[in-house]
Computed example of a mutant assay.
Amino acid sequence: MTFDRTGGPEVLALHQVDLLPPGPGELLLKVEAIGLNRAEVMFRQGTYFYEPALPSGLGYEAAGTVLETGPGVTGFSHGDPVSVLPAFSQNDYGTYGDHILVPSAATVHRPASRTPVDAAASWMAHLTAYGALVEDGRTRPGDHLLLTAASGSVGLAAIQTARRLGAVPIATTRTAAKRRRLLDAGAAHVVVTDDEDLPEQVAEITGGKGVHTVFDPVAGPGVDILARCVAPGGRLIVYGALDPRPTPLPNAQRFPALSTRTYAVFEVTTDPHRLANAVAYVDSGLETGVFHPVVDATFDLTDIVEAHRHLESGTHVGKIVVTVRH
């Protein structure tokens, strides 16, 4: 699957191409399922943090089996079930296709008990939540965490991660339609921002103390409101840019100050030591059932345009997965 111009879902097109043998450090995979991410929408639109080199493929996540290993690859053999992690540039590799080349360093073994759909729905979300909420050790039992736009796959993974840490996840959603789904997913509290004043609700929930951490994929001017929800010494982590407007620095007009930072999962996935720790943490959560992917809908690869339209609609709760027939 490639696109030769930026734009809406209609720019995506399937093409027959010759299979190339894997090069050094690469694997050739037969793909069974592909996890979709908002990052791919932005890449396709030309609004991601790096520009696509057209014509371009795209995609960060997949589940499949190894067909062939390239020179220098160890630890993988023909027929191994595997998952692909977001640890590369989409200008170099992509996961949208029935057969793909990927770096072995971005690939992990998949237990036979884990379905391709579940595997394709797990890694981006839980690795993102791990890096922000677990790795630095600052999240403690009893801490209140404010998770905005929480009905997406990362938001739901963050709810599960907060619960595993003993923290108290407060989820936000714009409309009441998703309140019940978020509570069922493990949120301790849900604030409907179209109907409720967020700082007031957070103050009531936390006894006036505020939250330890805000984990936000939206950015834009709304971070000023989020800053009012943070306890003294707390932090605001922005990991996305759903709002394309400029994002102010709340610290500049606030006392006591809060810590603000941007975050991307690639901080973890491009560092071999940090990635190994993250994979161990997430894999143990998936194996014990503490972590479980929430899949909103599945589409066939031939319906990739409709899958992207559904992803852009914002009506989904959880992951959208594309399956591949062979």
Rank of each mutant, 00 (worst) to 15 (best):
T6Q: 12
L12F: 05
H15E: 12
G25I: 05
E32D: 11
A39K: 09
M42G: 11
M42A: 15
F43N: 03
A53K: 12
L54Y: 01
S56N: 15
G57H: 08
G59Y: 00
A62G: 07
A63D: 03
G64T: 11
T65Y: 14
V66Q: 11
T69N: 09
G70T: 07
T74W: 02
G75L: 12
H78Q: 15
H78L: 14
G79Q: 08
V82D: 00
P86R: 03
D92C: 08
G97K: 03
L101Y: 02
A105G: 03
V108K: 01
S113M: 09
R114F: 09
T115D: 07
P116G: 11
D118A: 09
A119I: 01
A120V: 01
A121P: 04
W123G: 04
A129Q: 10
A129K: 01
A129L: 02
A132E: 03
R138M: 11
R140C: 08
P141T: 07
P141E: 05
L146Q: 10
L146T: 01
L147M: 14
A150R: 13
A150S: 15
V154S: 02
V154F: 04
L156Q: 04
Q160M: 06
Q160V: 01
R163G: 08
R164A: 10
V168H: 02
T172L: 12
T173Y: 01
L182N: 12
L183W: 06
D184S: 13
D184E: 06
D184M: 13
G186L: 11
H189C: 11
T193S: 14
D194T: 05
Q201N: 11
G207K: 10
G208A: 04
G210F: 02
V211T: 03
P217W: 12
P217Q: 14
V223A: 08
D224M: 08
G234F: 00
R235G: 02
V238F: 09
P244C: 13
P244N: 14
T247P: 07
P248G: 01
L249V: 14
T260M: 02
F266R: 12
A278Y: 00
A278D: 01
V282W: 00
E287P: 10
E287Q: 13
A297V: 15
T298N: 07
D303Y: 05
G314Y: 05
T315H: 15
H316Q: 15
V317W: 00
